[in-house]
């Protein structure tokens, strides 16, 4: 790239929806390497659909999605989820709303299942250690089936699974949803503590106060369109200067 910062994700004129319903209206979004981006918006305005569209899980979609320079979008109107695994192998880790967990697997197997790409599979031991540093409560629970964990622990496992992957783009959908405020804040704090390196993270959240001042950029989302870039926080400005 011209300014030396690599683009992880470039979405251009993306529209997506389910059947006759169109939810995303022609939106553009660029995510740079090493940045944390917050997307805020009310219920039903398309935050989750944007993430699902990037993962190829919507009913149909149009428009280009470049992930690490590879086209993963395009015109697609087949059933959802046909190509998701390919997008995931290009370096996407989606942590969806609500916990998509495998009830019967233990926490350890669960983390293993996150490391699906061959490289991540080989490196899964050090990675697991790293994740236990981020989420220390998981260390005691490694042999417990995930189905028996509490909501906060499940969320940690789910995020941990995403972090196990060899991903360059983390999409986190409503990490504080359905959790007690204190636990929600601690989960968010853990997300902020993750060293991104060359990767990027996009967090969708309804509660702006959880994001304010902690992410590099906040973008609003309203009826399927991205509305203006609000509040470039200090860290982002400093990075731009430095």
């Amino acid at each position: 790239m011209a300014d030396g910062v690599q683009e992880i994700l470039r979405v251009t004129s993306l529209s997506a929806g389910y059947g006759a319903l169109r939810i995303l209206h022609d939106l553009d979004l660029t995510v740079l390497a090493g940045e944390r981006l917050g997307i805020v918006g009310l219920n039903g305005h398309g935050k989750s659909t944007l993430f699902l569209a990037i993962a190829g899980l919507t009913g149909w979609q149009r428009g280009s999605i470049l992930l690490n320079g590879h086209e993963v979008g395009g015109t697609r109107s087949q059933g959802p989820g046909r190509y998701t695994h390919r997008v995931v192998r290009r370096g996407l880790a989606l942590m969806p709303q609500g916990d998509e967990i495998f009830h019967g697997l233990t926490v350890e197997e669960h983390l293993d299942s996150g490391a699906f790409t061959p490289r991540a599979w080989r490196e899964r031991k050090p990675r697991k250690a790293r994740i236990l540093e981020i989420f220390p409560p998981l260390a005691k629970l490694m042999a417990v089936p995930v189905g028996r964990l509490s909501g906060g622990e499940r969320r940690m496992v789910c995020l941990g699974r995403g972090l196990m992957a060899d991903a360059s783009l983390f999409l986190v959908d409503e990490p504080s949803l359905g959790l007690a405020p204190k636990i929600g804040r601690s989960v968010m704090q853990a997300l902020m503590n993750i060293e991104l390196g060359g990767a990027a993270m996009v967090i969708a959240e309804q509660n702006v106060s959880l994001l304010e001042g902690r992410v590099d950029r906040i973008i609003g989302m309203h009826v399927g369109k991205l509305k203006g870039e609000a509040s470039v926080s200090l860290s982002g400005a400093a990075r731009a200067q430095g």
């Binding site: 998701t84 998509e100 009830h103 019967g104 697997l105 299942s113 699906f116």
Partner: peptide
């Protein structure tokens, strides 16, 4: 094996399986 984990993961939750990069087909 990894394939076995793949199949077991799909047995638990096919939707989540595709999210961790398991090809359903």
């Amino acid at each position: 094996s990894r394939r076995g984990l793949e199949i077991r993961a799909m047995m638990m939750n096919p939707h989540a399986a595709s999210l961790v990069g398991i090809g359903v087909r």
